[in-house]
Design a binder for these strands. Structure first.
Lengths: 150, 150
DNA sequence: ATGATGGAGTTCCTTGAGGGAACCCCAAAC
DNA sequence: GTTTGGGGTTCCCTCAAGGAACTCCATCAT
């Protein structure tokens, strides 16, 4: 398919897509998040082609999002999230919020989140890291940053 | 490539990927967000194949994320975000936060966000929609919801 | 009226990525 | 010493992405 390489673009969205933008990658992270950590588990749960699973796992390890580590004396490995990887789950949580709102339909959301801090069933919302107030696309000005392209 | 259909999975991540998970889709939304609304503009700015751009725009319109509307007496059209689409930008903003933190390197972030409410250069963080406190993957329990698969 | 222009796609060919099944390697366990 | 099971490779087939060329249509210029 000779896909365009997003990693060189001066855009954090494109660069993030270079890490998790390929088909299946977000679902692999989701599975590892909820406890499927081994190749066979992932393959069985997702129904993904083994070839593609191998490629995706290698890519995610390369990008520092997953760590491949042995869990037995035998050649057995599990994939665990690094710090980078755990922070990527933020992206998934926002996708869940959007999907729950717009795509869940009559049946309602497939999973619920209970927030430890307040004990309530809830979902994520975006806030300004500086002042804590809501921060969405219409609440900001976009300015060129230091890493902007020439 | 006969890609697997994610839309039928009982997972809001998979369903959201059915909408914006194909290559280029998030970048198309980004471009429309920042003001490139016409076919030629998008094609020129992204360097995407015209064929794929056509497919992606149709798909995003189908899914209710974009609206295609005439802007002239001539057969000229522009693509604008619907409410659904504008809320999808949340996903992009979180991708920016992650990319800025982990992938920007020495040069720093390519773009900056100035938050209207506080006037500061900032970025988004996740908060609980219920109590407003931070809410990340480790701060929640995941429970089956009403739309869970059998 | 005739031709040029420009936006918005469509067509066609080539390459290579995803699906899927079969196969392989290795270290225990029987 | 054969079986088992995890963790991949290999192979072939189909279809999607890249890219260039082509089309259509309404205006603008001559």
């Amino acid at each position: 398919m000779q896909r365009t390489n997003f990693s060189e673009m001066a855009c954090s969205i494109a660069r993030t897509l270079d890490v998790i933008g390929e088909p299946w990658s977000p679902l692999i992270l989701r599975d590892i998040w909820v406890g499927f950590s081994r190749f066979e588990q992932l393959q069985a749960d997702l129904g993904i082609s083994r070839k593609v699973l191998t490629e995706r796992l290698n890519h995610l390890v390369d990008r520092g999002v997953l760590e491949r580590r042995p869990y037995d004396n035998r050649p057995r490995y599990e994939y665990v999230l690094t710090d980078r990887g755990r922070e990527l789950l933020d992206v998934l949580m926002v996708m869940v919020a959007w999907g729950d709102k717009w795509l869940a339909g009559q049946a309602g959301p497939p999973v619920l989140y209970r927030h430890h801090a307040c004990g309530e069933i809830s979902h994520v919302d975006l806030a300004c890291a500086h002042c804590g107030k809501p921060m969405h696309a219409d609440d900001i000005d976009i300015l060129p940053g230091p890493g902007a392209a020439a």
